[in-house]
Nucleic acid binder design. Structure first.
Lengths: 188, 188
DNA sequence: CAGACCGTAGGACAAGCGTCCTAGAAGATC
DNA sequence: GATCTTCTAGGACGCTTGTCCTACGGTCTG
């Protein structure tokens, strides 16, 4: 099979495993078994575990950008776009209850490891942050847009951690409602 | 040295290392080196790594209860007590920026590992949750006390994750201010 | 002083890890 | 069809992990 295709499959599966079990707790052998490749053969595609992580982060950044761009075409009102983000914790509820937020948990893990790719992982937050900032600016709050963006991120991370700990769907719904009320005071 | 004293020292040091570097990433050898004991000798005090974790969680639960009891003697107004909790993210700012919230990150890690002690770690959240609930009940909001308690926890976890990712002190301050305003609508 | 007991040191162990190597299969090129 | 490149299998390597064992130095009891 072509190298590019195999590489993409490795990244896709590593992405899922890193999310579900964490980076440290996912071994070369795990990825190899899931992809259907021998462990040693990995070295042809990726020279180290870190380089797989790097590719996974890059892939996540790209797909996040795609998703946000799509939301912009689907909603004209920036407030609707922001709510679309807020509701991720409902839309992806089952995954988040089981494994937390992909962005938050990766950042938390890499911070503990003092990992070289910590900075790259933070970019994932920044993609959302700048996008949210832009939406608040469009709503006429350019002066405090970044602050409001960070507040929305704070909400989503808090909900993710606690819904993961308690596996409580109702709690998520109540927090989303609260967020909707808060957001309405910043809408047109 | 007496067994009880050594045991307590192991727990104390393991507690710190688990917080700073994560559970998985802390080895028997690490703890041994930090305590000043040979690796093998550990088996005299703890029969497994999990049993150390269990002791660490127990110790954290106990010290959290002590702290909360102390806050009750220091503040008569439940709103002041809640603010004392809210301000943890400022008081322990440097640690949280460096290593996240001890409770949140442990729960997140154990969830990924699908670890047997996940439930015990959740107790740490519950200690805060029930205490906050009691404070809101004292403020006359018994009907929605648990919901409000969870909202405060959501705030603290969200702030912890993001201040850890961005190492941003100003952000924390702004979120605490926002929380203070929100809380004032529930005070007497 | 003799013996029992508590705490320790240090290494053996099997397994798993990330990394690396080599030989061969598969496929493309001429 | 021969040759060269691309991809793969499978295992060796050195290291670290959690676990376990045995033998030694202290301390206290009779």
């Amino acid at each position: 099979m072509s190298s590019a295709v195999t590489r993409a499959r490795i990244v896709e599966i590593a992405d899922r495993l890193f999310y579900e079990r964490g980076y440290q707790h996912t071994s070369f052998a795990d990825i190899g078994a899931a992809v259907g490749l021998s462990r040693g053969n990995f070295y042809y595609h990726f020279k180290s575990k870190d380089s797989i992580l790097d590719a996974v982060i890059e892939s996540r950044v790209a797909s996040t950008r795609r998703m946000l761009a799509e939301w912009e075409t689907e909603h004209d009102d920036p407030a609707d776009r922001i709510m679309r983000f807020v509701e991720i914790v409902v839309t992806n509820g089952p995954d988040i209850r089981a494994h937390g937020c992909p962005v938050g948990t990766l950042n938390t893990e890499l911070a503990k490891l003092d990992h070289a790719l910590r900075g790259r992982a933070r970019e994932l937050f920044t993609v959302f942050r700048t996008w949210l900032r832009d939406q608040f600016a469009l709503l006429g709050h350019a002066d405090q847009a970044d602050d409001l963006a960070m507040h929305v991120l704070t909400f989503s991370q808090g909900v993710a951690v606690l819904s993961n700990a308690y596996r409580d769907e109702e709690f998520v719904r109540r927090e989303v409602d609260r967020m909707r009320d808060w957001l309405s005071t910043y809408s047109r």
